[in-house]
Amino acid sequence: MHQVLTIAGLDSLAGGGATADIKTFEEFNVFGHILLTSVVAIDHPILFHDLPLSVIQAQLDSLKKAVDFSAIKIGLIHQIPAIHVIRDFLANSQCPVVLDPVLAFKEGDTQFNQAYQAGLISLFPYSTLVTPNLEEAQQLAGMTIASVEEMKQAAKKISALGAKQVLIKGGSRITGDFAYDVLYHQGKFTILKAPKSTASTTNGAGCTLSAAIAALLAQECHLEEAVQKAKAFVLAGIEHGIPLKNQAGNVNQLAYFRKDVL
């Protein structure tokens, strides 16, 4: 069985983060391992409790000794020194790496955000695919995005930062009845178009998508096919999501292969 690593935070509501990644990996029949970076209480405001750097390094050391990974997915890191540790690890890794660049912090354009963004960009050359959502893509590309054409422009700019391949997740943010994602790979664009879902159970959609892509790449699935399959997986998870009493609700990672019986 292929073994896949997630480098991520722990989401207290379990819709996103490391828990969502592990559930997604298992649904795609790969064995998941975790390098935990932080514990996150999903509330207002969101509370981040970062693990000490020594604990992150100790986890990584144990994983390197024990496992040969078929793919790596990276989500929330949240500490700039931890980025440096992870970059050194990726520099010696040969497997596919899917980087979900969690950038959109509510603090805005602070000195921390600028330094953190620069740190994430330093991981781009070691990543097979970078998967920003629309807000993250705007920050990385330094432009406003309101159309598919602007998504394509932003993808080129992000690629110029060192990303080999880029998937911009438009989701429901582009005006109109359709949701668009733009994949930029091998110098060409693939536009992914689907009717917008009316379901509100979307917490964890981005984490789940990148984890699904990583699981499929681990099994040597072609990138474009992996993205298509991952999108179908996430849509089923949204349509059959888990409502929560204090917010919209979670993506259900167990839905896709069981949707006929739900």
Rank of each mutant, 00 (worst) to 15 (best):
residue 90 L to C: 06
residue 87 R to Y: 07
residue 86 I to Q: 09
residue 88 D to E: 12
residue 178 F to Q: 05
residue 205 A to L: 04
residue 155 A to E: 08
residue 99 L to K: 02
residue 166 V to N: 11
residue 124 F to Q: 07
residue 113 N to K: 10
residue 143 M to E: 12
residue 99 L to I: 04
residue 203 N to P: 01
residue 151 M to V: 02
residue 189 F to W: 10
residue 142 G to L: 08
residue 132 P to F: 14
residue 111 Q to L: 14
residue 173 R to E: 09
residue 117 Q to W: 09
residue 83 I to E: 10
residue 153 Q to A: 10
residue 116 Y to Q: 02
residue 180 Y to N: 01
residue 166 V to S: 06
residue 155 A to T: 07
residue 121 I to A: 03
residue 141 A to I: 03
residue 99 L to W: 15
residue 94 Q to R: 11
residue 105 F to P: 01
residue 201 T to D: 08
residue 147 S to D: 04
residue 105 F to E: 07
residue 175 T to H: 08
residue 198 T to R: 13
residue 153 Q to Y: 08
residue 115 A to D: 15
residue 176 G to C: 06
residue 185 H to S: 11
residue 117 Q to S: 03
residue 149 E to D: 15
residue 127 S to Y: 13
residue 124 F to K: 06
residue 171 G to T: 08
residue 167 L to G: 04
residue 171 G to E: 09
residue 187 G to Q: 05
residue 179 A to S: 13
residue 106 K to A: 07
residue 164 K to Q: 15
residue 200 S to E: 14
residue 149 E to V: 00
residue 112 F to N: 03
residue 129 L to T: 00
residue 110 T to I: 03
residue 111 Q to S: 08
residue 147 S to G: 04
residue 198 T to D: 11
residue 119 G to S: 06
residue 87 R to V: 05
residue 166 V to D: 10
residue 157 K to L: 11
residue 104 A to R: 14
residue 136 E to G: 00
residue 171 G to H: 14
residue 198 T to K: 15
residue 185 H to E: 13
residue 125 P to M: 09
residue 99 L to C: 03
residue 202 T to W: 13
residue 101 P to E: 09
residue 181 D to T: 02
residue 153 Q to C: 04
residue 89 F to T: 00
residue 202 T to V: 11
residue 119 G to V: 08
residue 167 L to M: 09
residue 92 N to S: 09
residue 123 L to E: 11
residue 177 D to F: 07
residue 134 L to F: 02
residue 109 D to F: 12
residue 142 G to E: 12
residue 173 R to I: 00
residue 164 K to V: 00
residue 180 Y to R: 00
residue 126 Y to G: 00
residue 162 G to D: 09
residue 169 K to W: 11
residue 95 C to K: 11
residue 157 K to G: 00
residue 83 I to P: 04
residue 169 K to M: 02
residue 118 A to L: 10
residue 167 L to N: 02
residue 197 S to A: 07
residue 91 A to L: 12
residue 196 K to W: 15
